[in-house]
Design a protein around this nucleic acid. Sequence first.
DNA 1: GTCTATACACAGATAGAC
DNA 2: GTCTATCTGTGTATAGAC
Lengths: 219, 219
Amino acid sequence: MSLEVPAHNNHAEKPASRIRQKNEQAIIQAAEDQFARHGYKGTSMNTIATSAGLPKANLHYYFTNKLGLYVAVLSNILELWDSAFNTLTADDDPAEALTRYIRAKMEFSRRQPQASRIFAMEIISGGECLTEYFSQDYRAWFSGRAAVFQAWIDAGKMDPIDPVHLIFLLWGSTQHYADFATQICRVTGRTKLTKNDMEDAGTNLIHIILKGCGIKPPF
Amino acid sequence: MSLEVPAHNNHAEKPASRIRQKNEQAIIQAAEDQFARHGYKGTSMNTIATSAGLPKANLHYYFTNKLGLYVAVLSNILELWDSAFNTLTADDDPAEALTRYIRAKMEFSRRQPQASRIFAMEIISGGECLTEYFSQDYRAWFSGRAAVFQAWIDAGKMDPIDPVHLIFLLWGSTQHYADFATQICRVTGRTKLTKNDMEDAGTNLIHIILKGCGIKPPF
DNA sequence: GTCTATACACAGATAGAC
DNA sequence: GTCTATCTGTGTATAGAC
């Protein structure tokens, strides 16, 4: 479920020096920023280097090449994503669990919008860098997640919604607030989405989706 | 509400020759394909030219530069988008009108996924090419659309959902099936989304959103 | 480990023959 | 209107001094 990060200079004995760790992190952070703003092709190694406060050649020292750096960034992102979804179980109360999940996803959209955007652009343009991520393992994991909703349905706790489409609705509606923030701001006359805006959005989603699935809120 | 298309060789008297019209269309079509697959920066004029069956220099004859061509493509796309949303009115029956709208958006996601993807990538990367599109006019238009939902709420036809967030839910959930088709296919083991898949998805969305908004379906 | 200098490929754009 | 040849900038990547 995680991608290979080709850090070609990892001499097996040493556990990565402090200076290496610090630089790698700075580079990845800068790269995340730039990739999110300009896409893979639109970002130059030079820009990343400047933004990280390092000379360009150093990037090539830490990461074999541009693609390697990009994959490292993606990998860093994906670790964050899966965790939230894994907390749902068949034994949970649907209202409580879904509310918690939607809140978590909205919080993620608020705090890590760049991560969401890089992932979105990668998928939109074919997602070839994620081929190994969408492996057999991932399909199995996804089925397992869908099974939780099916269990709720079988237990009569919610309407017989196709779990797969419900997942896409959850993903699409929450990520929209990260990926399309620019449009949302322009259209509503805001300059940025505040914490309050995001909470309101979350509350709305929770209302519509829970009620739409025939789940009675506990409050 | 529409963008300027800088076709610098439009001598005011002539209404664009047949050959010009044909070539421009071929170029725009090829450009749409390439921009959707590789983004703005990732697409080269050369690739577009080859894909359109013309020498590279011809593109520069018809469109001042790469950005001009890109804006022409975007403009072409946006004309399609607004029309569907304009059909909703305060007098409509919410169930019928929303059902029709969701079906229309899903049909658009199915038939013009590239258009949706270009728009998405443009927005994600800041949407600077759409600055004039998101003008005062557009904000007014958007408010007008939101007012339709508010009218339904005031008439007691649906729950007091924030109309603005409802619109984002409608946009996000339907466009997700165009923009993230790659992920959906990989995760569900499909090679492409069929007409049936898209209809199922639409049916699900209609169920959840209508019920979630407290709208009684007429069927 | 770090960074300057540079090789090499390809991009966008244009000049000018046809 | 069309297309070949070419200019110029920028990008990735690396060689090699420190």
